[in-house]
Simulated assay, not measured.
Amino acid sequence: MMACDWRERVLLAARWLGAEARGVELLAEHVTCMAHWLAPAGITLVQGDAAQADLCTGPRRGGECAPADASACPLRVS
Results as ranks from 00 to 15, higher is better:
R15M: 08
G63C: 01
G62V: 00
A72L: 14
A39D: 11
L55H: 04
A35N: 05
V24C: 15
G18M: 02
R60D: 00
G18P: 00
P59A: 13
A35T: 06
G18S: 04
R61W: 06
R61K: 12
E20Q: 13
H36P: 08
R9Q: 12
M34I: 07
R76E: 05
A13Y: 10
Q47K: 07
G58E: 14
G42H: 09
A53V: 05
A35P: 07
V77Y: 07
A28V: 07
E8N: 05
A35Y: 00
A19F: 15
G63H: 02
T44I: 07
E64K: 00
G23N: 02
L55G: 06
L12M: 09
A35V: 07
C56M: 03
G18D: 00
E25F: 02
L75G: 11
T57M: 12
T57N: 09
R22P: 01
G62W: 00
A14F: 08
L12Y: 06
P59S: 13
A70V: 10
A51T: 09
R15S: 06
P74R: 09
R9M: 13
R22F: 05
D69F: 09
R60Y: 01
E29I: 08
G63I: 03
L26V: 09
A53N: 03
R22S: 04
V77Q: 11
C65A: 03
V77L: 15
P40L: 02
P67M: 03
C73I: 05
Q52E: 14
G42A: 06
Q52D: 11
E64L: 07
A35H: 12
S78P: 15
R61C: 03
W16E: 14
M34T: 07
L45H: 01
G23Y: 01
R7A: 11
A72W: 06
W6H: 12
A41G: 03
P67F: 02
A3F: 08
G42R: 10
P40W: 00
G63Q: 00
L11W: 02
R61D: 04
C4E: 10
V24M: 14
P59R: 14
D69M: 08
E25S: 03
A14S: 07
R15H: 06
D54N: 15
C73Y: 05
C4W: 08
R76S: 07
W16C: 09
H30R: 15
C65W: 00
A35K: 07
R9G: 12
C73E: 12
T32E: 15
V77W: 10
A70P: 15
G63N: 00
C65D: 03
E25Q: 06
G48I: 08
G58R: 13
W37M: 12
R9A: 08
